[in-house]
């Protein structure tokens, strides 16, 4: 069951995820055509409602929307009515009154996407809410992993780094577990929230012990500012203990893939040479993101009209 909204990876079972990934495969070809456009969402209006700065995710969604021929509105909180003090609810009611068909929302507050569904009839796509969820990121990661290995089930995956502050970690771990991967979350205890075992993952603080058995090493962004709140002493020490560098890359099995949701902090969680290594799939993640977002928009909005495309 997919929809009516896409808020949380917990709402998607393995069948739904498979449908999304299969559909994305079909859309990936669009990027290879001379005219990169299908008429699927012609006449549909999609609003990209971004309360938080984001370049990568917004551009990815915007390309996906335009390739599906949707009418696209970009709403950024800066310089808008929000900056003049309009409440989140009033912004939502305004969009509702304007009759948009879908809202892609990015917000600094966890739960904002779910709250939005209370006030609008439009389909809501969560493009990242606080430290809660970022489901399209998880879906594009699953797509990238499946594309590389032909499956997700049974793979050994480590998710490494700042889990407590990461919406990506929540979505990715859920998606991987749902699809049958074996997930180990790795990082210093200060960056791992309590009750992680309820996610169906293993927890480790020792990256070196985990690396040799991995199929996928998923590195999370570690913001340098975190060291000012004593999550770790220095980014140099973090890099030495939990960062992926060339020495650790050598320990990783040759077939293993390296993923990162970006933007990378080269020199903290990943060194430059690892980021550019052949088994780093970071640019594939970015291009797959467009196909996966097209797939989700199509499945949530396309319906019967979409079928004729």
């Amino acid at each position: 069951m997919i929809g009516p909204d896409l808020l949380d990876m917990a709402d998607l079972d393995a069948e739904a995820i498979t449908t999304i990934l299969d559909t994305a495969e079909g859309f990936k070809d669009v990027a290879l055509r001379p005219i990169k456009k299908v008429p699927t969402l012609r006449g549909r209006t999609v609003c990209n409602l971004f309360f938080e700065d984001s370049t990568r995710t917004r551009i990815s969604f915007e390309i996906a929307e335009k390739r599906l021929s949707a009418d696209v509105i970009n709403f950024s909180a800066k310089g808008s009515s929000v900056a003049k003090g309009e409440s989140f609810k009033d912004t939502a009611l305004t969009l509702q009154a304007m009759g948009v068909d879908a809202i892609v929302i990015r917000h600094a507050a966890s739960g904002a996407a779910q709250q939005l569904t209370r006030w609008v009839d439009a389909r809501v796509l969560n493009a990242g809410d606080g430290t809660h969820q970022h489901p399209t990121q998880a879906l594009l990661d699953l797509y990238t992993i499946r594309e590389r290995f032909g499956r997700v089930e049974g793979l050994e995956v480590a998710v490494v780094g700042d889990v407590v502050h990461s919406r990506v970690a929540r979505s990715v771990c859920q998606g991987l577990v749902t699809m049958g991967a074996h997930v180990t979350v790795v990082g210093p205890p200060t960056l791992l929230p309590p009750a992680l075992e309820t996610w169906g993952v293993r927890v480790s603080h020792d990256l070196d012990a985990v690396l040799p058995g991995l199929d996928v090493c998923y590195l999370l962004r570690v913001q340098r500012e975190r060291m000012h709140a004593q999550f770790f002493p220095t980014s140099r020490e973090y890099a030495r203990i939990w960062g992926l560098d060339a020495d650790r890359l050598a320990v990783l099995p040759e077939h293993a893939a390296i993923l990162h949701p970006g933007p990378m902090n080269r020199g903290v969680e990943i060194t430059a040479d690892v980021a550019d290594a052949p088994n780093a799939l970071i640019t594939e993640q970015v291009s797959n993101g467009i196909a996966v977002r097209m797939s989700v928009l199509y499945l949530l909005l396309g319906g019967e009209e979409g079928a004729e495309a």
């Binding site: 966890s110 739960g111 809410d129 430290t131 809660h132 929540r170 309590p194």
Partner: peptide
């Protein structure tokens, strides 16, 4: 802090 630190805060992404 936003919510009691525990399973719910971890899952909901609310600071413990």
């Amino acid at each position: 802090a936003q919510l009691n630190e525990g399973e719910a805060s971890t899952r909901l992404g609310l600071a413990g």
